[in-house]
Simulated scan of single mutants.
Amino acid sequence: MQESATATPTLQAAPIVTLSGVGKTFDNGTVALAGTDLVVRRGEFLSLLGPSGCGKSTILRLVAGLDEPTVGTIEWHDNAKGRAAQRERNVGYVFQEPTLMPWATVFDNAWLPLRLKGISRRKAEGQIMTALESVGLADFRAAYPRELSGGMKMRVSIARALATSPSILLMDEPFAALDEITRFRLNDDLLRLWDEKGWTVIFVTHSVFESVYLSTRIAVMTARPGRIATEVIVDEPSPRTEAFRTSPKNGEIARRTSEALHRAMGE
């Protein structure tokens, strides 16, 4: 079910990955997901919105290949085979906590995923500096995490994900622990990068207002075991501005999204 019949251009784009009848039961017997169907389209900004424990982060881990579904299928819609197909599936992952190595500089923290792929520091320098420049941290390449603010640490985490030039970016509540001013600023930076890079983004959040501001589409999830209860289309142009954040249209979409969330939770 969709809360709006109006389609943004990304809703008409080809799918990049599809979850069909996906369920996930953990070894301790917890059923995190049940009958989850979700089509992720190229270039869209998709938010997963739902209560704690509904399986939002589990969906990210399944898409990233960090875990396997108990039932159901996850299908990548590759346009090519071999190495080209692997590029199609190049996934960047930004966790809720920056998880930076305290003994390493900003540069070396951003280098980590390329280092794990066997790419030398020297060969990776151009990619890393491009990533740091994109988040405004080029001048802090030699700084250590202890010298950075919370927002700057999260920028390093984002740069680390960008260094691999991902086709799809998975973000697990990356701004939840930040103050509101920093959160708003990073929301704007993220939308700018999404617009420039043409990524597909799957973004986990508990915030109705954040999901409306960032997204082209919001998938509203039920309580555990999670599934997609409904979708809300945010048919607003990009880039979003402060005017949209405080507009009646934003408030109206947020109201519909909140109502859909309450229905999904059985309230």
Rank of each mutant, 00 (worst) to 15 (best):
G198H: 07
L46Q: 04
A223E: 10
T18H: 01
V39H: 06
S52M: 08
S165M: 12
T182I: 10
A85N: 04
T25F: 04
V31Y: 04
E125M: 13
L114E: 02
L112S: 08
N28R: 04
G65E: 05
V220G: 03
A176R: 10
A14T: 13
P51T: 05
L186K: 11
V232P: 04
V234N: 05
V204T: 04
E68L: 12
T216R: 06
T222A: 08
Q2V: 13
E75I: 09
P113Y: 01
W103H: 14
A7N: 13
R122H: 14
E196Q: 13
P15G: 04
G43F: 02
R245N: 01
L112E: 07
G126S: 14
V91C: 11
G55H: 07
R115Y: 07
L162C: 10
T18C: 03
G29F: 09
E44W: 07
V71I: 11
A131D: 00
R245V: 00
K24C: 02
G126R: 14
G118L: 05
K123V: 14
F26C: 08
E125F: 10
I233S: 08
A243H: 07
L46K: 02
L33C: 01
N90M: 14
S149L: 10
T230Y: 02
N250I: 00
G251R: 14
D37V: 06
R185H: 10
I128E: 03
